[in-house]
């Protein structure tokens, strides 16, 4: 499993970084998403999909390897 993200679309709402701080962060310079763990364990899948669904610009997704 791998997290896909689109920094160009990201509007820096920080919903992802607030909910899953161990997986997402925000760049100190532009506030946009940083993915700390690009290949998290399968046990995080549901939580990441929930966060991806709440991203205001749908910049996040999960894909299988």
């Amino acid at each position: 499993m791998r997290i896909r993200y689109d920094r160009e679309r990201c509007v820096g709402s920080g919903a992802c970084a607030f909910t899953l701080p161990e997986i997402f962060d925000q760049d100190e310079d532009d506030g946009r998403v940083l993915v700390l763990v690009e290949r998290p364990g399968a046990e995080h899948r549901k939580a990441i999909e929930d966060v991806a669904a709440s991203c205001p610009v749908l910049a996040l997704s999960v894909e299988d390897d």
């Binding site: 820096g12 709402s13 970084a17 607030f18 962060d25 925000q26 760049d27 100190e28 310079d29 506030g31």
Partner: peptide, 8 residues
């Protein structure tokens, strides 16, 4: 604005 309002 947003870099100053990050989750952290």
């Amino acid at each position: 604005l947003i870099p100053e309002l990050t989750a952290k």
